[in-house]
Nucleic acid binder design. Structure first.
Lengths: 357, 357
DNA sequence: CCGATTGATTGAATCGATTCAATCAAGCGA
DNA sequence: TCGCTTGATTGAATCGATTCAATCAATCGG
């Protein structure tokens, strides 16, 4: 009994009930060649004589054969998949980055597994394990807290590039210099003649926000001034428009400086709204600068001066670095890249004010 | 020579040069059990006596073993991956949908391969082939034009649910009723007493835009009026803020109706901007309604009345349907789900106007 | 006209985990 | 103490494609 039909379970159902997912073997049978030849036409077409090739390709088309990537991968072929783990798919920042990554990956024939750690290190680890199990070719990661050690990645043979996270010298990463961005913004305001500047910050749990605060102070120090006298900090729990409104109201209660720099554009929009309601004009009464340069900034009622992050570049550079890492042999040198943001000056920051320091 | 070390190429390097990616075999060797037992501790822990289990688990931990998903899949285990092919990752709509899909998939222990067809049917086919090759468990697709036939998907054993696309009765799909959405919007304007309504449409190549136009006309017919007399259509090539501005300028040239319904919120924002510049007040002089209810709509200078699509629901319902399809045996019935959008009334549409029809 | 060379094709081993039948050991009743 | 049941563990076959050595055929020079 056991030997009567030892290996044709699949074939039977394939022959009788339905088409069944065609295997390479089926193609070979239909084309009247061996399995090896079919494989060759797919992977080394030059080794196969044209007539045979057409024969095989016809059979493939006829059966609608799609080679099993798992079997292929098992034999050692490099996977065509890379992983991307971000903190929050919902954020426009990561969305744009993901877009760039997807595009860059596509250019070299790869697809992307996208997932979100939701800022949870435990979930992050779980996701990395899944990616390792999938034997993806490599992965891009924005760590929730500290990323797994480089040893973890090399142990799992999982090339990694950290995204928007300044790591150590023994790993690859690409980050944006938030300190520099804020520095540009505040320097701009100081150059316009503002003597006191408010910094509306989002949650300080975010490295980015802390960096932007640092940059603001640095710009003031650069100008030979005292941050303690020039900077007014307002810290919000969130970073939406509503938080910006609250921040502006807090400022209104204590006296609004002539310039406000916000940790991101949403906060700036909120601040704008609240200040307008209070009868203040932008930029005549208050100069306003945001951060991120979201799509909307240029189209806001008063076009918003903002710091543009090279998100696109972030995604594509990181992907390129990853491919370098993936394809590079063991002689791969870890590289760290810091991208510089750019200040986009629009109407909201206004013109130089008369010196009344 | 050939037989001297027939199978230990990997083992050698593993033993001598570096750690090497540990295989199940290595775990078995370290734990002093057979491969089968290791597999059992992973997949049928109850079949293995507790002491052996700890032994094996220790070995797994010690080696940092992560089972090869490809080998697993090859043996027939269901993949933990689903595919998602959208038209454009960049758009907020798909971003939000992707987010919902990712979340729903995660809840049942799956990850998502995200990719964008960029509205190109050729690329769409290529992506679907990749997904089929990866033997993903199933896939969600927003077709660029007509999707591949249900036969294609069943041939490749690739369960599919069409996303935001009303397909046929022999496939699964989830879509939003754009006709109904526009109908709600225009009915609202008519009920407020507006006798003439402009419809600012985006590119008519988009099914959505055409449907919204239909809905606008339907609402007028519902009210017993003649669309030819009531509706003024303005068609734009794009659907950004700039296009909205152009549309408004065209309206201004011919005389602006007392109400404007826009194919999406961006167009509405542009219209708002242009009308304000022309000295018209919203909603006092012109009532304005958008579509999509993007994050910004509520926070716009004059909070925008808009039609909210249940995008989140779209993503999660589609994913649930896909899982039903994937896990369901052949007795799976194809299901079609149409989600209803909702009108969110805010200030921009104003209050009832005095009857001056 | 024969041996050698080139090139196309085939066959079999292989990747790593699963699974089922087979084995092995322990425990139990008689 | 022997046979039998029960349950843990092992071994071998298997999934589907790749690849390399082996085979087979044809062509060419001598």
């Amino acid at each position: 009994m056991r030997n009567a039909e030892p290996k044709s379970r699949r074939s039977i159902s394939s022959g009788s009930t339905g088409p069944g997912r065609p295997r390479l073997k089926d193609v070979a049978a239909l084309a009247g060649v061996s399995a090896g030849t079919v494989s060759h036409t797919l992977n080394h077409p030059e080794r196969v004589v044209p007539e045979t090739r057409t024969l095989v390709l016809d059979a493939i088309r006829q059966l609608g054969f799609v080679p099993n990537a798992h079997a292929r991968a098992l034999k050692g072929a490099a996977s065509q998949v890379i992983g991307l783990v971000v903190l929050d798919i919902g954020s426009p920042f990561f969305m744009e980055a993901a877009r760039a990554v997807e595009r860059s990956a596509r250019e070299v024939g790869h697809v992307v597994i996208l997932s979100s750690s939701d800022d949870d290190p435990v979930r992050e680890t779980a996701l990395l394990r899944i990616l390792a199990a999938q034997r993806v070719r490599g992965c891009l990661l924005t760590p929730a807290e500290a990323p797994p050690s480089p040893a973890w990645f090399s142990r799992h043979r999982l090339p990694v590039v950290l995204l928007d996270y300044p790591g150590g010298a023994t790993e690859c990463w690409v980050a944006v210099d938030h300190v520099a961005g804020a520095r540009l913004a505040v320097r701009h305001l100081l150059e316009l003649g503002h003597a006191r500047v408010a910094f509306v910050s989002g949650p300080v749990a975010l490295r980015q926000m802390v960096d932007r605060g640092k940059g603001a102070r640095a710009a003031i120090v650069d100008a030979g001034l005292d941050p303690g006298e020039v900077l007014v900090e307002v810290i919000q729990e969130g970073f939406g428009i509503a938080d910006g409104i609250v921040a502006a109201e807090r400022l209104l209660a204590t006296g609004v400086p002539s310039a406000v720099f916000c940790g991101n554009d949403m906060l700036a929009f909120g601040v704008y709204r609240a200040l307008r309601r209070a009868g203040l004009r932008i930029p005549d009464d208050v100069a306003l600068v945001g951060y991120d340069d979201v799509d909307f900034a240029a189209d806001w009622a008063v076009p918003l001066t903002s710091v543009r992050q090279p998100i696109d570049q972030l995604g594509s550079v990181a992907t390129q670095l990853l491919f370098e890492h993936m394809t590079g042999q063991s002689e791969h040198m870890h590289r760290q890249i810091v991208l510089q943001p750019e200040l986009v000056v629009r109407e909201s920051s206004g013109r130089p004010i008369d010196g009344r320091s």
